[in-house]
Amino acid sequence: MTEDEPLVNDEDLYCIGCGAKIQTTDRDAPGYTPESALKKGMENNELYCQRCFRLRHYNEIVPVGLTDDDFLKLLSQIRDADALIVYVMDIFDFNGSVIPGLHRFVGNNPVLLVGNKEDILPKSLRRSKLKDWLRQRANEAGIHPIDVALVSAKTNQSVDSLLVQIDKYRKNRDVYIVGVTNVGKSTLINQIIRQNTGKADLITTSRFPGTTLDRIEIPLDDDHFLVDTPGIIHAEQMAHYLNGNDLKIVTPQKSIKPKVYQLNEGQTLFFGGVARFDYENGPKNGFTVYAENNLYIHRTKLENADSLYEAQLGKLLSPPSTEEDIEAFPKLVRHELKTAKKSDLVIEGLGWVTVPEGVVVAGWAPEGVAVILRDAMI
């Protein structure tokens, strides 16, 4: 090989971080790696594309030219596979975790539903009740899982139990891990790899959507594979409207500490500038908030809420915090709800407010982010 001859030619090489095919010619396309870095990566047997290298070492996201259709085409390979489908969802953002039309990709393959970020839930929340609720919501979305598991990929909680379930249900087949971006799918894969190989953080993970660019195959012990598929980009996620620093403030990071607010009719709670809760009608009551512990919650009168939001977005009511993010942030949409029994008003991706029976409330969330009412979990 001469000095001018490219290192990538007949032999296909793939980034071990995101799965993209390595190439050295197009800086803006997936898999780009400078030839100097490629040579070093091959020598060290740790080959990362430039995008993953920057993401791992500098937490710097580099956009690439893949569309939603590209992701869906990659995911459609599942239809022709004989495999167990492990469907990873964010417990705090079920609607944002739904892959539209997943049943078309699954075919006749069984689905094991995995609710991630279980460690953040209060201990008082009954896990069996949560599993039943996740199964019901999945059924509404056209998915009928053979079982439901709860894990924390970040802390490795219950991953052992999940592996036992996977082994039970896969029956000498491949295993496909699917999920939308930002639900912790690649983090879960990393925990599985760590337990099986001892290598840490092999797959690129970040708070940014769209990290895994192509399927990544991890060998199992019977000539089959565990396959990490690309994360489908779901536009209706709170994560898509905030930068990385603001997302840390909004997305629960540790076990939630409930906060109780005694509210009179006509009072409002602001969750930074990203959401809002109005107590429209009813006697004085206690409302319990389950959200990120560091998220600023501001109480005010309902009659002042609109003008306060307009004047204080990005200031008192933050996040969003930067001028650019404030300009791009969607308008808040109102969802009025009346409770027939004790219920949780859920703002997907943020948390929930436990509401007493027989009152009228309204939840406000960015346009496209779901606000739903469910039976109280606690």
Results as ranks from 00 to 15, higher is better:
96 G>H: 05
90 D>V: 06
103 H>R: 10
73 K>C: 07
56 R>H: 06
42 M>A: 09
63 P>I: 11
47 L>N: 10
105 F>K: 09
103 H>L: 10
100 P>D: 03
42 M>R: 15
94 F>Q: 00
53 F>W: 10
43 E>G: 12
68 D>E: 15
61 I>K: 13
80 D>P: 03
60 E>K: 12
101 G>F: 03
78 I>T: 10
60 E>F: 13
54 R>H: 13
75 L>D: 06
57 H>A: 05
71 F>N: 14
53 F>T: 08
58 Y>F: 14
78 I>D: 03
40 K>N: 12
42 M>F: 12
54 R>V: 03
48 Y>P: 07
65 G>L: 15
105 F>V: 10
71 F>L: 08
64 V>R: 13
86 V>F: 02
99 I>H: 02
59 N>M: 11
54 R>E: 07
67 T>Y: 00
53 F>I: 00
99 I>M: 15
52 C>R: 05
61 I>Q: 14
54 R>N: 15
99 I>Y: 06
60 E>L: 11
92 F>M: 05
42 M>C: 14
59 N>F: 10
74 L>F: 06
88 V>P: 06
71 F>I: 14
44 N>Y: 08
79 R>Y: 13
63 P>A: 11
54 R>Q: 13
45 N>P: 05
100 P>V: 04
52 C>M: 02
104 R>N: 15
41 G>R: 07
69 D>T: 14
79 R>N: 13
64 V>I: 11
70 D>K: 02
52 C>Y: 03
47 L>V: 15
78 I>H: 03
54 R>A: 09
88 V>A: 03
55 L>T: 04
105 F>T: 15
67 T>C: 00
92 F>Y: 07
41 G>I: 08
91 I>R: 01
74 L>W: 05
60 E>R: 11
89 M>V: 14
93 D>T: 05
86 V>D: 00
53 F>P: 00
71 F>E: 09
77 Q>W: 01
87 Y>N: 05
76 S>Y: 15
83 A>P: 03
39 K>W: 03
97 S>A: 05
83 A>T: 11
100 P>Q: 04
104 R>H: 14
88 V>I: 13
50 Q>I: 05
46 E>I: 09
80 D>I: 02
51 R>C: 07
85 I>F: 00
86 V>N: 01
95 N>L: 02
80 D>S: 15
65 G>F: 06
77 Q>P: 02
103 H>V: 10
40 K>S: 11
66 L>V: 08
60 E>A: 11
57 H>T: 12
57 H>K: 09
78 I>W: 01
74 L>P: 01
45 N>K: 15
58 Y>P: 03
79 R>Q: 07
87 Y>S: 01
88 V>N: 02
49 C>I: 10
63 P>W: 09
69 D>E: 14
60 E>W: 06
98 V>A: 06
41 G>C: 11
82 D>G: 04
55 L>E: 04
99 I>T: 04
69 D>L: 09
67 T>P: 01
72 L>Q: 13
86 V>S: 01
87 Y>H: 08
99 I>K: 04
69 D>A: 12
53 F>H: 08
78 I>Y: 03
71 F>V: 15
67 T>I: 00
77 Q>R: 15
44 N>G: 11
86 V>R: 00
87 Y>R: 06
69 D>K: 14
75 L>P: 05
80 D>N: 15
